[in-house]
Design a protein around this nucleic acid. Structure first.
Lengths: 192, 192
DNA sequence: TGTACATCAGTGAACGCGCGTTCACTGATGTAC
DNA sequence: TGTACATCAGTGAACGCGCGTTCACTGATGTAC
């Protein structure tokens, strides 16, 4: 019969999950704290105990977003030991993340709502950045290679989300990956 | 003494200007029709006569945004006749637009609010796309070159806006342009 | 082992606010005759 | 040239809504003795 207890147990985690689902359904622009609380089956004043205000919740979601972002990159890099292939894998993972979690993607890269000065969020973003730097370092590249890899990956992902890139939107998954590989290949530092 | 007349004269244009200013100050996320009307010095019901609803106004602003975007590209391409330099100029113009009109940039590339099926907006976006294609065609490039040029330009612009690209945010304007040139150069099809 | 008490998590009612939209209206303009 | 009338652009009051936040409260848990 599942009588629900007065205390939730792990409401913080439940609110994060609900927040993510809410984000997925309504996007950053339609996000509301009340809707998240309702989805978690809890009064709309409850989140305040865990996140302070709506900004706190979005900041926590963005932090979690970076973790999920990193996981997508890792998943695609895991298949190989070749540093070049790892970099291409990271670009694939970037596309995966944007496709699978568009609202989270927008939240972490294009929204002013999360509090950028929050230490956890900053650390999560920093970790992702360092990871990219590490990939390029393994190839003997420099700062401009980091910019190139990140910008090309990000640009393809963001434009595809917005439906702006004619050349990508009609493609099958295999064709799309071939396109990503082609673009990334010419960006990576030459084999030394 | 400037008694203001009952009829405005060109309220449509005034509302677009006010909308752009409002967008610049509050961003897409904080945009409101009432604030735009107030800024234009008009009752908040007036915009309905020209744009229907708030979505109509944002769609018109996005359409205008594409025109301004194109103008930034043109301005940077105008200085040269070399097709390679023109492509680099377009990338510079892309950065200029993002820097000078961040909210408009976000509106046209990262917001779901404008009505994508609106014919004027679609035509404006299409025009920008075709322009890019033309630049690449002049270089003998193919579809993947279009994707590469656009994605790299877009990625650098968007990441710089979000402050995510360490390698770009601390740079002087000259250094930043050198970086953009470096990235774009390796993306353009090889000289034939 | 039992009891008092502090602490904490969640409730639900209430607040004030700004929002988009609707509507009856009014002032101005232009056109038909 | 003058007048009636249709049309249009803008007004301002009112609507209902969902929002974030506050607050006094209550139920549950854990800890000190």
């Amino acid at each position: 019969m599942e009588e629900k207890p007065y205390h939730h147990g792990d409401l913080r985690a439940a609110l994060l999950a609900a927040g993510e689902a809410e984000l997925a359904e309504r996007g950053v622009e339609g996000f509301s704290l009340r809707a998240v609380a309702k989805r978690a089956g809890v009064s709309h004043a409850a989140p305040a105990h865990h996140f302070g205000d709506v900004g706190g919740l979005l900041t926590a979601l963005a932090t979690e977003g970076f973790v999920r972002f990193q996981a997508k990159l890792d998943a695609r890099e895991a298949g190989t030991d070749d540093p070049r292939e790892k970099a291409v894998g990271a670009a694939f993972g970037y596309q995966d993340f944007a496709r699978d979690r568009p609202a989270l993607f927008r939240l972490i890269f294009s929204s002013a709502k999360p509090d950028a000065s929050n230490p956890e969020l900053h650390a999560a973003a920093e970790h992702a950045y360092r990871h990219l730097v590490g990939l390029i370092a393994a190839l003997g590249g420099d700062e401009s290679d980091v910019v190139a890899l990140w910008a090309a990956s990000h640009g393809m992902a963001d434009l595809a989300l917005g439906g702006r890139l004619r050349g990508m939107s009609g493609l099958s998954m295999a064709e799309r990956e071939a396109m990503v590989r082609s673009v990334i290949s010419r960006i990576l530092p030459p084999v030394s």
